[in-house]
Amino acid sequence: MSQAADAHHGHLNSAGEHGPHHPVSYYVKIWALLLVLLVISIAGPMLGNKVLTLVTAFGIAVVKALIVAAFFMHLNIEKKFVWYMLLAMLLAVVMFFLGTAADVMKYDGSHWTKPTSYLYTEEFKKAFSGGEEHEGHDADEFDSKALPNVPYGETESHKAQGSHKSEGHGLPAAEPRHGT
């Protein structure tokens, strides 16, 4: 199976014979389909329904990606090996997500909690809901100084559901950020 297919001899795609010649209109039709999907993916979220947004925005994104891959990148006539290789790389990323989500994506878990993330979320809401009030008098001027910067460590280790104060710190907390 190791025929010395010479790459310079005009384009021989992987199927070995000259690529099936599609007329230009074939590609333009696919392009038009992609545009329609784009419009849908923009219109969908405007209706405000959470599930609909997810389906239209991300579902269509996956469909568009597959269309571009299959028709524009000619993966539909490419050797199967390429599909499997790209899929394997994608699976590696999914594997990374599965192993990491339990720690990075949650506020608390078995015997641990992230008090700073709770504080950060509250501060963020305040900083940005405050942002909404600004909406009135100025085109969403956002005071970047009010960025949520919650020094951690010496915070009261309270969680959203009730907390206890513990004062009296023997050590001055090191300034956590670049002096901001």
């Binding site: 990374f96 192993g99 990491t100 720690d103 990075v104 992230k114 700073t116 993330s117 950060y120 963020f124 960025l147 949520p148 910067n149 919650v150 020094p151 951690y152 956590p176 950020r177 670049h178 901001t180």
Partner: peptide, 23 residues
């Protein structure tokens, strides 16, 4: 630049780097 990807005070998480590194 002083972004806060791994800085818990700004929403980041040091464990994200540990997972990225050891993956």
């Amino acid at each position: 630049l002083g972004t806060g990807f791994f800085d818990p005070a700004r929403g980041g998480d040091p464990l994200l780097w540990e997972h990225l590194f050891w993956f």
